[in-house]
Amino acid sequence: MFRETGDLPGAWYYLKSDQGRRQVLESELVNECGSDQHPMFGQRVEVVACCGTCDEVLFKLLDQQGWAIVHLTWRRETDSSWPACEVVGSWSNVLEEMIDHGH
């Protein structure tokens, strides 16, 4: 399990103490990734953080090294380009993506 340490940039915040919210977000990811062409289809993940001003969520990939920042749409998707997703390999890249996020 990933251990949250340090502050996150902008409106991002950790969800380690909110198990209910984490379960909702993990279930929503599964629901939205309806196409086996989506990079998150079938991935085992753990919710780490989310943005307080939009629907972006940071997931730790459990079957490989890396992270995914996913923009949830809150509907079942059939287009493999949704939900929008950025997979990054290191924690420093995650922080860069969060900073580039713009709010």
Rank of each mutant, 00 (worst) to 15 (best):
F2V: 08
R3A: 12
R3Q: 13
E4R: 14
D7W: 13
D7V: 13
D7R: 15
D7E: 11
L8G: 08
P9M: 12
G10Q: 14
A11N: 14
Y14L: 04
K16D: 06
K16Y: 04
K16R: 13
K16C: 03
S17I: 07
S17P: 02
D18I: 09
Q19Y: 11
Q19N: 08
G20I: 13
R21Q: 10
R21L: 09
R22H: 06
R22I: 06
Q23W: 10
V24E: 12
V24P: 02
V24D: 11
L25K: 06
E26V: 04
S27C: 03
S27K: 13
S27R: 13
S27G: 08
E28H: 08
E28D: 05
N31G: 05
E32R: 07
G34P: 05
G34K: 08
S35D: 01
S35M: 02
Q37S: 06
Q37T: 03
Q37W: 02
P39Q: 04
P39W: 02
P39E: 03
P39L: 02
M40W: 08
F41V: 00
G42H: 07
V45Y: 05
V45F: 04
V45Q: 01
E46A: 07
V47Q: 01
V47N: 00
V47S: 00
V48H: 03
V48P: 01
A49F: 01
C50S: 06
C50K: 12
C51H: 13
C51M: 01
C51N: 10
G52I: 01
G52A: 01
T53Y: 07
C54I: 07
L61T: 03
L61I: 07
L61Y: 05
L62T: 05
D63E: 11
D63W: 06
Q64V: 04
Q64H: 02
Q64Y: 00
G66V: 00
A68H: 00
A68G: 00
A68Q: 00
I69P: 00
T73I: 13
T73H: 10
R75T: 11
R76M: 10
R76F: 11
R76V: 14
T78C: 08
T78W: 07
D79M: 14
S80I: 09
S81W: 13
W82C: 12
P83R: 14
C85R: 13
E86Q: 15
G89H: 05
S90K: 05
S90F: 10
S92H: 13
N93Q: 14
V94M: 06
L95H: 14
E96H: 13
E97D: 01
E97G: 02
I99R: 15
H101N: 07
H101R: 14
G102W: 15
G102F: 15
